[in-house]
Design a protein around this nucleic acid. Sequence first.
DNA 1: GTGCGACCTGAAGTCAGCTTCAGGTCAAGG
DNA 2: CCTTGACCTGAAGCTGACTTCAGGTCGCAC
Lengths: 156, 156
Amino acid sequence: MDAHDLLTIGEVVRRSGFPASALRYYEREGLLSTTRTSGGQRRYERSVLRRLAFIRAARTIGVGLDEVRDALARLPDGRTPNKADWTRLSRAWRGRLDEQIAALEAMRDGLDSCIGCGCLSLQRCKLSNPEDWIASRGPGAQIFPPLLRRAPTDGP
Amino acid sequence: MDAHDLLTIGEVVRRSGFPASALRYYEREGLLSTTRTSGGQRRYERSVLRRLAFIRAARTIGVGLDEVRDALARLPDGRTPNKADWTRLSRAWRGRLDEQIAALEAMRDGLDSCIGCGCLSLQRCKLSNPEDWIASRGPGAQIFPPLLRRAPTDGP
DNA sequence: GTGCGACCTGAAGTCAGCTTCAGGTCAAGG
DNA sequence: CCTTGACCTGAAGCTGACTTCAGGTCGCAC
């Protein structure tokens, strides 16, 4: 636990692949914490690499940072997260992935039927009006439908 | 083809579910065209509803507006697009959906193996480092990995 | 001809998830 | 002690897909 166990931001950049700007941003957003040298430079514990791996995995499957922060906040404070902790977190995303896949498959089937009829009718077509998410969702970019972007669960 | 065949923006809003602001935006962006009354108000042809249905379907499966404009631009000028036209366009997205599903399934399998090992290791884990998309992709929100957001094809 | 709801425009705001920049400070090797 | 590269901060910028707003105009019914 002495100084040699701590990583500079440059080392974390090289080992994680995240740019320094992203690391600083994640820290501001409360996903990461750091210690500082007397001069104010960041020093990271090695466990940050695991957190970053988790963050990347979550982002890859489309989970927003809010939710990632939420999940990471449930890790036991103070001790290095272990295998069981990560497994528990990973399992939650697994269900999410299954849902996404199911949603896409449903759309593909809808598209198949549309290819059959050539319609894309507003009333009849599953694809052009999938269960009335016709109402607005507020401003901002929405690349993917709400399935991927739901609110963080506030459960236990 | 007389005036009674044309729709006001309010009617298009009611029939398509898109807010007027989005319709005006799509027009500015070249996805839709309109005629105008002498006083400058928009009048839409009924075929716009079909275009909008297509736009919604494309957006639902994660296609960006650039690409949608691209696809719509290939519709034959001047005549109302028919069943075959829409079928051709729809078929293109079908392949896209298949790819997305495959990508997600690959990730799910990666996640399964990670649950097995509890690792999320930066080097070994497919999920945390899927084929080196570790390099930056420039600014802007990236909810979903590049699979969904590729450049419009410039082919025939 | 008048009232009023539907419509118009351009500019600015929003949101996520970062990046970029300017203008400094730290720390380690020589 | 000095240099040089790594690091710091806060503010501003960017992308995509829109929305919101202010301040004015249309068009139709009465």
